[in-house]
């Protein structure tokens, strides 16, 4: 199958999440046509994978999938306005068409966390690729020990999926800690960086799998902090970001040291990347 095949999808709903972030719900316009991945199978995805989102006349960008892997027929993408394509996506309305190629990239090693504590760390929009992990683990909650979500963002008004987080907290056995960089005096939650939450959550360092997604600096500091607590580098996973044009290893743009982020990543174990992730301009 042609990895460059772009399939038209229809915007079903646009949900404004924060001042600069929206979540798009999209689906195939014609149900009679089975959605296909580039590999030729019916469209399905695993947590941590991404699609290339295309706006006619503007261009194409990689965006992680933020929906439920058990219901891939409804695609969700949470997009932050940072460039031409993401701005165009944020201005979409119900019924508008966008193009999809994907899914691409390797997934979070969710199954590996079975029988272990699972710690999810997200910074800002980095919560989007973490959400499918939660959707996958909730129906099989008893296979995991403690599950913690540590989420840091800029300010209380920038918290993504706020009402959903509240639901998760009450419905599933999930410890959620949220912190913000800055807040007005009436904020009752935590203020501080996300790394300060690590010591507030209980987990067994020897038997904990950690998944982190956020700005690279936040991931680097989180990895250091987790190592301090005794978590093994091979049990820490990060989601990397680089420029992407083709998403299949042809264009060379996403190279990060010896890897192509599009096909060798975007998920890497900290053990793999620890000698590279702090290097300047790699």
């Amino acid at each position: 199958m042609d990895p460059f095949l772009t399939i038209p999808f229809v915007i079903q709903r646009v949900k404004k999440e924060t001042s600069d972030t929206v979540t798009l719900e999209i689906s195939r316009p014609d149900d009679r046509v089975k959605t296909h991945s580039p590999a030729g199978s019916a469209f399905s995805f695993l947590p941590g994978q991404f699609n290339m989102l295309y706006v006619l006349g503007i261009g194409e960008i990689p965006v992680s999938i933020s929906g439920d892997p058990n219901h891939p027929e409804k695609l969700f993408h949470t997009v932050r306005k940072v460039g031409a394509v993401s701005i165009a996506l944020s201005l979409m309305e119900k019924g508008d068409r966008i193009g999809i190629r994907g899914p691409f990239g390797n997934p979070w090693p969710v199954n590996k966390a079975q029988g272990m504590d699972l710690l999810l760390m997200a910074g800002g929009i980095g919560l989007a690729p973490i959400r499918p992990v939660l959707y996958q683990v909730f129906p099989e909650r008893d296979r995991y020990n403690r599950i913690g979500l540590l989420y840091g963002t800029r300010a209380p008004e920038d918290i993504l999926y706020e009402s959903e987080i509240k639901q998760w907290r009450s419905k599933f056995d999930l410890e959620v800690l949220v912190t913000v960089d800055r807040a007005a005096g009436d904020w009752k939650g935590n203020t501080g960086v996300v790394t300060t939450l690590i010591s507030k959550v209980s987990f067994d360092p020897d038997r904990t799998l950690v998944m982190i997604c956020g700005p690279e600096v936040m991931m680097r500091f989180s990895c250091l902090e987790l190592q301090k607590k005794g978590v093994k580098p091979e049990n820490i996973f990060v989601s990397m970001e680089r420029n992407m044009k083709c998403s299949v290893g042809f264009c060379g743009h996403c190279q990060f040291g010896p890897w192509f982020v599009c096909k060798d990543g975007p998920i890497f174990s900290y053990d793999q990347v620890k000698d590279w992730i702090g290097k300047r301009e790699i």
């Binding site: 006619l56 503007i58 194409e60 060379g252």
Partner: peptide, 22 residues
């Protein structure tokens, strides 16, 4: 290495996706 460019006509209705050496 290559890049992919989006080239449109003035109306924005007709486009070409062009791959070029980068």
């Amino acid at each position: 290495c290559a890049s992919i460019a989006e080239i449109t006509d003035l109306t924005g209705e007709k486009v070409e996706r062009v791959q070029k050496w980068d």
